[in-house]
Design a protein around this nucleic acid. Structure first.
Lengths: 163, 163
DNA sequence: AACCTTTCCTTGAAACTTCAAGCAAGCCTG
DNA sequence: CAGGCTTGCTTGAAGTTTCAAGGAAAGGTT
């Protein structure tokens, strides 16, 4: 960072502003929708979704944190809350006595089943119904590129310059 | 929402997952970078940027909240914090005795000037250096479409069905 | 086995956001 | 100008996230 800064071009600035506005507006929108209809914020809902798609509807804490792209600490707090709601249950991991499995309960599954249609509709209305198929494909590619570059393993997580 | 849900296609699902992962990873990344180098989270940094670009480096609270796409309440707390840091100052609005102006102080401007290059570099590295010019243009258009559809004035903010 | 390191997860406190409530000034309508 | 409605902003409490610290089990290493 000691070199002269390369500022953003006019178009890059406009894109960046649009990105910031769209993403914060959408996250807000989803949070409100889910808080209203499912009684939890978007991140928590995403955890239930991940669990519902996992074999046996259960996942190691660390795995869940990684696929959801959140810290373990955050997950730990979140699962505690979902446990109080009766939607998730903690379970000892048989193979590793340090481990914990987060398990989606039947009640949790029921909540998901009940609220999924409304959530999908919200996502559709905010994104997919407004974009052409080409744009959906472009967006997918762009987001995959960005996500790849931001993986903890992809940047400086393990100090590559020290190797 | 009483009609049968239209689920997402395979590609829409992949795009949606990529979107969620990329946006959360990036927001996290920016928060950490700015917390480390500027001592504030990304949203607060954005407020200083907005103020720095406003005439007289000052903006009515409501205007600032609107351009930053956050609630007034959140802004009120945020400005209180920035005020404690000496980076922003509150000022009575001459024309409307209810109003408050948020003013960027010289210290706030200095912080911005000092940390902007590093921040731009981070944004570049995470997004613009990884995308082709076409993709930047595509992303801009896509985000503008989404943001437009999510404006409080654009959806159901003022109950259009009651008109 | 003793020791050190790493992995897995939790905890409490501090920071931040949301939500509902509220005050005060401007604005209308009669 | 009185009454009620709206706008602009703040506040406190509850909920969520981050950060630093730490305990316990697993995995080397000697």
């Amino acid at each position: 960072m000691t070199t002269a800064p390369r500022w953003l071009s006019e178009e890059e600035q406009r894109t960046w502003r649009a990105y910031l506005q769209a993403t914060t507006l959408l996250e807000d929108h989803l949070d409100r929708q889910l808080q209203r209809d499912a009684g939890m914020p978007h991140v928590y809902y995403g955890l239930l979704v991940q669990l519902s798609q996992a074999p046996e509807r259960r996942l190691r804490m660390t795995e869940l944190a990684e696929t959801a792209k959140i810290t373990r600490s955050r997950l730990s707090h979140a699962v505690s809350r979902l446990e109080r709601n009766g939607w998730v249950r903690r379970e000892e991991c048989p193979s590793d006595r340090r481990g914990q499995n987060a398990v989606l309960t039947d009640e949790g599954y029921a909540v998901l089943k009940q609220t999924a249609p409304g959530h999908v509709a919200t996502v559709r209305q905010a994104m997919f119904d407004r974009l052409t198929p080409e744009q959906v494909s472009q967006l997918g590619e762009i987001m995959r590129v960005m996500a790849e570059g931001l993986q903890p393993t992809g940047a400086d997580a393990d100090l590559p310059w020290l190797r």
